[in-house]
């Protein structure tokens, strides 16, 4: 359904010189499956999502969606073809209200359905429908609203970038259930969850481990998850920029 072929990405850093962010990314997502992407901070997970969505244009390689080469399509065109991305850090708006953004996500949606999506992410519609998507929302509220928007969009492929980040402990299980049930709702939708969460990752069908701008491992969850959980991959394969493993505490 979606295929990344030999994707490379270079971006200009703050000093202006190009930095290689992604290298040799080959990934095939099949219809109806739930994928988890994990890996260390700065490894390139969000960058992969942005290349799929067209927010970053790949410096190399191709993006195929339902067999069509969409590498040169704009964000808007990809969104209209059935791709959706829930931002890791959703931007804030002045004056745009929750109800309005839900209507942008799904033109023609009725108010009942909007209320339903808000309830799905644990927000009381009475309190949030008319709220501004501005600076007054808390971090967790912003993330929940972001999830509500992409769910309302009902896209064929939806990427959730750390949907659980900043969301309280009591809600994480509900959020997992929501994404899993929506995804497995029979509509043959595909979802990608970028996550660091130990509850989220095991429910996925397949896992992809990204570090240092490359895919280090990918495969069925039952094969990959134990490696990640038991730190087997971390110790021997992932190196951070300083050359070491992460969080190595020196004995005092």
């Amino acid at each position: 359904m979606l295929e990344l072929r030999n994707i490379g990405l270079s971006l200009n850093g703050e000093s202006g010189e190009a930095k290689e962010i992604l290298r040799n990314i080959n990934l095939t997502l099949e219809e109806g499956k739930l994928y988890g992407i994990t890996g260390p901070n700065g490894g390139g997970k969000t960058s992969i999502a942005k290349v799929i969505m067209g927010i970053f244009s790949a410096t190399q390689g191709q993006v195929l969606f339902n067999g069509e080469d969409i590498t040169n399509l704009s964000i808007t065109e990809r969104a209209r073809k059935g791709l959706a991305y829930a931002f890791q850090n959703p931007p804030r708006f002045k004056g745009i209200q929750v109800e309005e953004v839900m209507r942008i996500a799904k033109p023609g949606i009725d108010e009942m359905s909007i209320r339903g999506y808000l309830r799905d992410v644990g927000l009381c519609p009475e309190d949030y429908l008319a709220r501004d998507l501005g600076a007054n929302l808390s971090g967790g509220e912003t993330k929940r609203l972001e999830v509500a928007q992409v769910l309302a969009k009902e896209s064929q492929l939806t990427i959730f970038d750390e949907p659980e980040a900043g969301v309280d402990l009591w809600t994480i299980q509900k959020l997992i259930n929501l994404i899993v049930t929506r995804h497995r709702g029979g509509a043959n939708r595909t979802a990608v969850i970028i996550s660091h969460n130990e509850q989220f990752l095991p429910v996925c069908d397949e896992l992809v481990l990204v570090a240092d701008g490359e895919i280090q491992e990918q495969g069925p969850t039952n094969a990959i998850w134990p490696l990640i959980r038991d730190d087997i991959i971390c110790d021997c394969q992932i190196r951070n920029q300083c050359g070491g493993g992460f969080y190595e505490v020196q004995p005092s």
Partner: peptide, 9 residues
């Protein structure tokens, strides 16, 4: 960009 990902041009 955010609004474009929701389908606006």
């Amino acid at each position: 960009i955010k609004l474009m990902t929701l389908g606006l041009d």
